Amino acid sequence: MCHESPTDRERCPRLSSSRPDQPADAEAHRDASFDDVWATAQHFTGWLTEAQARLLHAEALAAPGTTDALEIGSHQGRSTAVLAHARRARGGRLVALDPFVDGRLFGGAATRTIFEKNMATAGVRDVIDLRVAYSTKERASWSTPLSLLYVDGKHDYWTAGDDLMWAVHLPEGGAVLVHDCYSSIGVTLAILRHVLFSRTLRYERRAGSLALFRVGRPSLADRGRVLAEMPWWIRNVGIKVLLRLRLRPVARLVGHDSPYDPY
């Protein structure tokens, strides 16, 4: 669920409860080609770019073996397919959390139907544990360790901040990937509040608006890298204002030649 996408807790049956029995060593991962899954996933509606998808795939492939990864916000499944493909190579699964909210932006049950069809097309249904639920409600009762966290849920400050708290279930060095970071006002404010002053998360890098953080004590340089993204964030917010004022020619002057928000 991406709230900028053109695209009491209900737990749906898993798409599959099976766990493939595959080796987790590096040599066994050679057949987990990103290009194979992206050839299909790129046709699913969503904002994830190829560079961002590559980063997701690489981190999901590097994450600890059979421990589940978690995706918050699936929409029609572009990122879900990429993550699930990599987790299968590690003998693990992907838990996909999305409430599939009704409405013009999200599509509710219709979007869920498209999601499930897309996962079948991508051939990853067997490694996805789909849960139709709000991440903020699901977190209250969660106790299982996770290998990776991907956050692309509701983009307001409060929800994004709450979603970052799932990181307590990750091991040291575990990846936390946040989409629309340094692009969305709500998400970026949550990062400033919960990461800039954090003692347990450090900022590493980004691909477009997909930012990579890791569980670990941050250095002063790590905190500085967060602040160094602020000019890019201000630029992106300005572009959004220009697009809403229908001033796309002005947005082109700062290098944004697209009718869509920066992502």
Rank of each mutant, 00 (worst) to 15 (best):
R87V: 10
R139L: 14
Y203D: 04
M119L: 13
I234V: 14
R217D: 14
A89M: 02
V101I: 15
W232T: 13
L170D: 07
T7I: 14
G73A: 08
T40H: 12
G216K: 04
R244C: 11
L243E: 04
G216P: 03
L212T: 01
D156L: 04
T121V: 15
P6V: 13
R90A: 05
H256A: 00
E10N: 15
R87I: 07
R214E: 13
D36I: 14
L130F: 08
V215I: 15
G103N: 08
S74G: 07
I234F: 03
S17A: 13
S79W: 01
P171T: 06
V176P: 08
W166R: 01
S258T: 09
R205E: 14
R30V: 14
E10R: 15
Y157G: 10
A207W: 00
A175T: 09
L94C: 07
S198Y: 08
V226C: 10
W38T: 09
L170N: 09
L253H: 05
S183Y: 00
P231W: 01
G77V: 03
A251H: 05
R125H: 08
A167Y: 03
Y182Q: 07
F115D: 13
S209N: 00
V187P: 07
V215G: 02
I185P: 03
R9I: 15
R112V: 02
E172Y: 10
S147Y: 04
A28D: 11
V168L: 06
A120F: 11
H179Q: 12
P218A: 01
T200F: 12
R139N: 08
I191P: 05
T80S: 11
E59Y: 06
Q42H: 12
L146A: 06
R30K: 05
W232I: 14
N236R: 11
Y182G: 07
H75Q: 13
A51N: 13
T159E: 08
C12E: 10
Y263M: 07
E172F: 11
D98S: 01
L242A: 09
A81C: 08
N236F: 00
V187L: 10
E27L: 10
A84E: 00
T45F: 05
H57S: 11
C181E: 03
R88N: 05
T40Y: 12
A62F: 01
A221F: 04
H256D: 01
G65I: 11
R14N: 03
D31T: 12
V82P: 09
V151W: 02
A81L: 10
